[in-house]
């Protein structure tokens, strides 16, 4: 059986909020290492991969592999019933029909309990090879969100070009064009504001801004975001979560003219 207790419901609420625009139904794969999720959007352009390691929970118990097929709209409805600071416990039997969510207030004696009916989801699973990326950019997640939002006002697509000069986000639209260039930067007062660029070879790729803007819904989960790029492979956008957990988005590039 599964029993996983999160100190703050907020973490799961934010993760689910970040992916509901991309994915409707998905399996939460539970085993002794934690709770994982991999799902593609309907058009198979973007992929979400989440890992909440067992260390992120206290306690965490899962004796065998359990797949919880959950409709994310249903999960969102139930998670709205939890206060952000509530303690959240997920429970399921070994061959479950439902997943049980318990919300406890640390300050009062309130205890809320909900069951969500599970679904059989036959999900296509993709193998993601370990990739040595040509360029990795770590930057404030709010900055990436702002650039994406600003350029989306002008265009559907963004070109991300990484050279030793820095990283340039640029777009061309009906009303004109725009670009934002970032260089490696160390902020002495606040390292959250640092921009670091690791480059082994120059990269230039084009992506859909609509998808990037969806990924940026995860900005509340982490002050930092890491973009990893190589020519002609999907972009990896990664938000680090507590206890070495992560929320990753992959986005297939636009190709050719």
């Amino acid at each position: 059986m599964l029993e996983a207790r999160l100190e703050q419901a907020n973490l799961l609420k934010k993760v689910v909020d970040s992916i509901t625009n991309l994915v409707q139904d998905c399996n939460f794969d539970c085993n002794d290492s934690g709770i994982a999720l991999q799902a593609m959007d309907n058009s198979h352009v973007a992929l979400v991969a989440m890992m909440l390691r067992s260390d992120a929970f206290s306690p965490f118990r899962c004796d065998r592999n359990i797949a919880l097929g959950i409709n994310l709209t249903s999960l969102t409805k139930v998670l709205r019933c939890a206060q952000n600071e509530d303690i959240l416990t997920l429970k399921a039997e070994d061959a479950p029909d439902v997943v049980n969510l318990v919300f406890e207030s640390a300050e009062s004696d309130r205890l809320s309990e909900y069951d969500i009916k599970l679904m059989d989801i036959d999900q296509e699973h993709l193998g993601i090879p370990d990739t040595e990326y040509a360029a990795s950019i770590t930057m404030p997640s709010a900055e990436f969100q702002r650039i994406t939002r600003d350029l989306l006002a002008l265009s559907e697509s963004v070109s991300i070009e990484c050279t030793k000069e820095g990283v340039k986000f640029s777009c061309q639209g009906d009303i004109g064009s725009g670009s934002v260039t970032l260089r490696s930067h160390t902020n002495v007062d606040n390292e959250d504001r640092n921009v670091s660029i690791d480059l082994s070879e120059p990269v230039s790729l084009m992506f859909s801004l609509k998808y990037l803007s969806n990924f940026c819904k995860a900005s509340g989960l982490s002050s930092r975001v890491k973009l990893s790029l190589s020519n002609e492979v999907p972009l990896l956008v990664e938000y680090a979560l507590p206890s070495n957990s992560f929320l990753r988005f992959y986005l297939a590039p636009k190709i050719g003219d």
Binding site: L47, L126, P129, P234
Partner: peptide
């Protein structure tokens, strides 16, 4: 305009 590629072209189904 650039053509949107899909993930299957890059990642293998397992």
């Amino acid at each position: 305009t650039a053509q949107q590629s899909r993930l299957e072209g890059f990642f293998k189904a397992v």
